[in-house]
Design a protein around this nucleic acid. Structure first.
Length: 456
RNA sequence: GGCGCCAUGGCCAAGUGGUAAGGCAGAGCUCUGCAAAAGCUCCACCGCCGGUUCGAAUCCGACUGGCGCCUCCA
């Protein structure tokens, strides 16, 4: 499988893995749980979930680690404003996030490390950097010496000249950096902030160090895939590389840097800080998990896509088409061949996770199934393959009829009565039943073998 | 200002040298009491200009438009 690597700006073969055990080690930067997650986070989660599911399906063992940054400026600010402890706010949002992942049919990562759980490892990581001459304590803070790491290496991931960064660097006169490019590994405690003891006094980890420490401890010194949103390329992942490679002395830290493009909303990036966002909860409520996933996989993960009601509605309709075909009934005739659908699907996914192309294969397959059924052929195998491949993309193909289950006996009764009305050619009354049910979200379809209904 | 990305039918979106996948929406037809679902048919010469080539949406250059990053951010 080929994947695009941000660092080398080329495609790289995922296999062979770095480690001898053949396990793909993947670290994905997760969320900072200071507020409710939005669709951009959903896109991110779904992209890596599809990747993960595809590896599972191909029989490639993968260890997937995704962190929670549960020590953070915004988390502290917000918790203080709400008058609750930081960990309580984080906990609440992490719980919500996990619940939404489940609703979106996202497989859980194998490990979900949190900063608060690895503070001792972070401290020893920082101490190691100081010992190696890549960091220095200043006041109660500790800073990373960017120039020590080397201008070329530092700017490689974001393709930037280190000197251009200077103009944009935030220079805060109260900070104790010896070079504006340097960034904080450890921040000395300020009043009203949670803090941990350290060799440099009480304080807390800076933003970037936690991922280096967590990846090191959960996966090792070098990993196969490091993922995250494109907005993390600079400075977060840039700094991670600097920290980890300086600490371990090994390069590359990650063989493949995999970044998903950011979701747009009304011409702008969907972002918590800008405030233009649609929450995951809203989308799930309005369109359901399959529509959301279909929306995400309809475009390539490295192309920016825009959230819109039209797009979600189209995705919902597409998902329904696949579901209809996957659970249609075939005939008793000759079995329908699936041709090279499986190969074409695999080929597309192997090509830098080209989900739109993979999806096209599924739609082709769905058409073949429908056509075969119309010809009275046995489509069981084809439908089975369709369900299997939809599963690889994480589509549930579940009918949104959880609520309808309760009402099923009553609906069945109405359908039965309508059948009698139709037999008596009482079209007006029978249509009234059908239209009435439709208004209540139940769709009726009359076929040769009788009438079926489903929740819409 | 610096670095980078993108521009394909009404909407979305594949395609990186040989003459445009797929989905949604729309139109017609078939099936059907009607409807739904489904099937068939129809619907683009790929932002603009120039160049390379036997041949370009695909390569090169210029232009126009849009977007991202430049230490909050999936």
């Amino acid at each position: 499988m080929q994947l695009h690597d941000t660092l080398s700006n080329t495609r790289r073969e995922l296999i062979p893995a770095l480690a001898e055990d053949g396990v793909v080690r993947m670290y994905v930067c997760g969320v900072t749980p200071y507020s409710e997650s939005h669709v951009g986070h959903a896109l991110h989660a779904i992209v890596f979930d599809v990747f993960r599911r595809y590896l599972d399906w191909r029989g490639i063992p993968v260890k997937h680690v995704q962190n929670f940054t549960d020590i953070d400026d915004k988390l502290i600010d917000r918790a203080n404003r709400l008058g609750i402890p930081m960990h309580e706010l984080a906990e609440q949002n992490i719980e919500d996030y996990h619940r939404q992942l489940t609703q979106m049919n996202v497989l859980p990562a194998h490990v979900y490390p949190r900063v608060t759980e690895v503070v001792p490892q972070i401290i020893s990581f920082i101490q190691g950097l100081i010992d190696r001459g890549f960091a220095y304590a200043s006041g109660g803070d500790v800073y990373y010496k960017v120039r020590q790491f080397g201008p070329a290496a530092y700017g490689a991931l974001s393709r930037r000249d280190i000197d251009d960064l200077l103009s944009g660097a935030r220079v805060d006169p109260t900070e104790l950096k010896s070079d504006p490019l340097d960034f904080a590994l450890w921040k000395g405690a300020k009043p009203g902030e949670p803090s941990w003891d350290s060799p440099w006094g009480p304080g807390r980890p800076g933003w970037h160090i936690e991922c280096s420490a967590m990846a090191l401890h959960a996966l090792g010194e070098q990993i196969d895939v490091h993922g995250g949103g494109a907005d993390l390329i600079f400075p977060h992942h840039t700094n991670e590389i600097a920290q980890t490679e300086a600490y371990t002395g090994k390069s590359p830290f990650a063989r493949i840097w995999m970044h998903n493009a950011l979701l747009q909303l009304g011409g702008d990036k969907m972002s918590k800080s800008i405030g233009n966002l649609v929450t995951i909860a809203e989308v799930l409520e309005k369109y359901g998990a399959d529509a959301l996933r279909m929306f995400v996989i309809s475009s390539h993960y490295r192309s920016p896509s825009s959230y819109s009601d039209e797009a979600l509605e189209a995705a919902r309709a597409g998902a329904e088409r696949l579901r209809n075909a996957a659970y249609s009934s075939g005939g008793a005739g000759e079995a329908l061949e699936t041709g090279d659908a499986r190969e074409r699907f695999t080929e597309a996914m192997d090509d830098d996770l080209n989900t739109p192309r993979a999806l096209a294969v599924l739609f082709d397959l769905a058409r073949d199934v429908n056509r075969g059924a119309a010809e009275g052929r046995d489509t069981a195998n084809a439908r089975s393959l369709l369900r299997e491949l939809c599963g690889v993309l994480g589509l549930t193909l579940a009918a949104p009829e959880a609520e309808a289950q309760q009402a099923a006996p009553f609906i069945d009764l109405l359908v039965a009565v309508r059948a009698e009305l139709r037999a008596a050619k009482q079209w007006q009354l029978s249509d009234r039943v059908r239209d009435g049910l439709l208004e209540l979200g139940i769709e009726i379809k009359d076929g040769p073998e009788g009438t079926v209904w489903k929740a819409k």
